[in-house]
Every structure is written in structure tokens, then in C-alpha cells.
Amino acid sequence: MDAPPPRPSLGLPLGPGGPALGWHSESGAPVPRRVVEADDALRADEAFRLVCEGTALLWRGDYHGARQLLSALARRADRAPRRRDARRAASAATPYEAFHRHRQVQGRRARLLGLLLVPLTPGPEGYAVPLRRAPDVRAACAAAYGPPGPGARPFAVALRELLGVIGAHEWRTKGVPVPALGGDRVHPHYGVFSPVRGEYVDLVARAPLPADHRLAQDVGTGTGVLAAVLARRGVGRVLATDQDPRAVACARENAARLGVADRVEVVTADLFAPGRVPLAVCNPPWLPAKPTSPVEAAVYDPGGRMLRGFLSGLPAALTEGGEGWLILSDLAEHLGLRSRAELTALFDAAGLTVADRLDARPAHPKAADPGDPLHAARAAEVTSLWRLTPTR
């Protein structure tokens, strides 16, 4: 990955007489308007008051003290005034209203916690956190941000983001086991959605392949897990496409790790690669809503852009007798974000016929958690693989 682009300045020096800190946010958060320095002497209640006012805290104390403060801020954010009344109101709301209230609460929480900042300084061996007892973050930051380029200057990030960078690197290092691949592991890169929900992968592993399966496309490949499953099932060659450079690099690495690089070609493309194929597979984001971070782009798709693009482009991408596999949860239907009638109308508008449908129930913990704000919708959720063919 290339070095990070020039960053806007926070307006605070790294140290006495030092260079001004730049600003970086993977979620696209703007530069905080007001920043004050903070250390272990700052009490959690005062810190919470400051972030609620929109003041960012640039941490100068012990690294583990910053982590403890972040946890304390999270607890206070989660017990905001009238939270009980809000829960009662949400329980009486429609699923659509409950979803948007949940997103508002989560967004406010993320904004507050994103105002606790830590500095990162570039060096010959990578980025470092210049705080007492800070961990070695060189490998994690290089994976997420790229190595420091010539003239790189110190910058600040939200501690919450840095912890996500560190956690993502741990996931990338150890990998995620995939039962459909015989327990072999997929290694997600930072910002690329991890296949922790296995039901959609299992659907692709058990759906009947078309008679001609010499060639297939995996549209929006992400980690490349579905392309690898298709190759392991005997598809002669899989074109795996994605427009995200991180996903392209991730899918190529996983194809090599899984021993299918000779059958999986990863290319940069917005939806389809040129040419026609007997089989095109797509697992688009399931919810037509706006993402608030890069990794959420795998879950939220404003206006259903990718879903609509795949369906409308599918007939022209298939050979005679070919079929498309659309893997889609009906969670959006249970939340009132999209109806089944609207989905089938998209099929009709694209000139597609449903040849078959395979279903799977979710097994993730939230589906069985009655305390989850969206429990009713999650408990009713079904993930489906729609086998689609052009209408004759």
C-alpha cells in the first residue's frame, strides 16, 4: 500500500517546539474543532463532559490509562440520561424506527469515543505510539496505513480506531476458519469484511453448480472466500472482482494461501469484469443504508446500489443457459428497509427468473440475544441464495 496522503493538521504540536500533528480518520470524521491535551490526571467524568461538548482529548499519559479512560467513557455513553425511557420507546416503535434509533445511538457513541486521540510518529521502522507502555504497533499500522513515506509527519488517530487496527492485524495474522473450506483459514485485511458469518459461505458450498462450470465470476469478492469455495468445488477458473484496493490485495493473498491462485484471478473492477460467464455470484451488502466506516461498506449499501447493479448487469454477463447466484439476507425486510415485493420487482425489471432458492438460518450470537435492540428482526432473519436465470 502507498504511504498515506497528506493529512490536515490538528493545530497542536507533538511536543514542545515539535511539528504540528496531522489528522487521520478511516471513518472520514472531520478534524476536531477543539483539542486539549490530557493525561492520567484527568477524571473520567470531566473527560466525558468534554467529549460531550465536542472537545477532543489528545492523550499524553500512560497508554493503558488511555485504554481505561476509553472504557470509562463507553460506560458513561451507554448509560446516557433517559436511556431506560428510550429503550421503552424503542420497544413500542416499528422495526424501521427501532433500526434508525439504534443507528443514531451507535453513531453518537462512536462520535464521543472517537474524540479520545493518541499520536502516531513515523520512523525508519514504521509508526510508533510515543506514550508510556505503548505496544509495538509497527506491523499493524503498516498493514492499515502503509509504511511512512518520505516526509511523513506525526499524526493523531482516535484510540478506538487504533485498537481496531491492532485487532484487525491479529485477525489477519491468525485467520478465520471456514468450515466450507475444510476448516482452512481466510485471512482478512484491515477494512475488508471478515467471513465470520458462515451461513452465506455454506450456501455457496452446497448450491448445485450449473452443467457448464468452467468459468465463473465472484462479484465484489472481499476476502476472496467465495471464489476459493468455487475453485475448491471444481470451477475451472474464477474471476474475482472488487473495486477496493485492500480487498483486491486481500483476495490475492488468500487465493495463494489456499492453493487456488492458479484458478482464481483477482481483478479490479466495479461489479462485473468484461466478458460472459456461465455463473456469476454476488454477496452484496444486505442493508440499504449509509455506512459510517470502510468495513461497514460490506454491510450497508446506500440505495442498494450494488444489489441493483448486479441484477441489472447480470443478463448481459451470462452465457446462454447461465445463472446468477445472489446471496442476500432478508434482514432488510424485517427492518422495513426493503420489502420482498421490492426485491422481486428488481428481478422482474432486470429480466430475471427465480429458478430456485436455498435458505439458511443465522447462527451468530445476536440472533439469540433478546437484549439486542434489533433482536426481533435478527431472530426472524433468513439468508438466501437466489438462483437467477435470464427470462426467455
Results as ranks from 00 to 15, higher is better:
H102K: 05
R214F: 00
A355P: 01
L307Y: 00
R33G: 13
L73C: 06
P4F: 07
E97H: 04
P291N: 13
T391C: 06
H169E: 15
E323F: 07
D356V: 09
L258T: 09
V295D: 06
A379P: 07
L374S: 10
E161I: 05
P245G: 02
D244P: 06
A251W: 02
S71F: 08
T383P: 04
A247H: 06
G15A: 15
P188Y: 03
S194C: 11
P6M: 09
P124Q: 13
R340A: 07
L346H: 11
P195M: 10
A380T: 05
W325H: 05
Y127L: 13
D372H: 15
G309W: 00
Q243Y: 03
K290F: 01
G236K: 11
T383F: 00
F272Q: 11
G126K: 12
L215T: 14
V225E: 05
A143Y: 00
G164Y: 01
Q104R: 15
G175F: 14
P6W: 03
V219S: 11
A93P: 04
L120D: 04
A377S: 08
A128G: 11
A227Q: 07
V186Y: 01
V31H: 10
W386Q: 13
L181H: 10
D242H: 05
R263N: 09
G11W: 00
R232Q: 00
P210G: 11
E333I: 12
P195R: 13
P195Y: 12
A47H: 08
T319D: 12
T353P: 01
A363Q: 03
P285H: 03
A255F: 00
R79L: 07
G303I: 06
A345T: 15
A41H: 14
G322V: 06
A261V: 10
T221F: 01
H102R: 10
P8Y: 07
G322S: 04
C282T: 07
L14Q: 12
P4V: 14
A280W: 01
G167R: 11
D270K: 12
L311Q: 02
R103L: 15
W325P: 05
G149E: 12
D359E: 14
H334R: 15
M1W: 01
R103T: 12
A168D: 07
I327L: 15
G275I: 09
G321Y: 01
L374I: 09
A231Q: 09
P284N: 09
A316S: 13
G220C: 02
F347I: 08
L258M: 08
V105L: 10
L388E: 08
G54N: 11
G151I: 11
G17N: 13
F155M: 11
A240I: 04
R33N: 06
E37S: 14
A377V: 06
V219K: 12
A261D: 14
L117N: 03
P16D: 15
L311I: 07
N254W: 04
G191F: 00
A140G: 01
A89M: 13
G351A: 09
D40R: 12
T292E: 15
L279H: 05
Y96A: 13
K290E: 14
L314A: 03
G324A: 08
L346P: 09
A255G: 02
L159P: 01
A77D: 03
A355D: 11
A134M: 02
G336Y: 04
G175L: 12
G259L: 12
R233N: 04
P291R: 14
Y63T: 06
G309K: 06
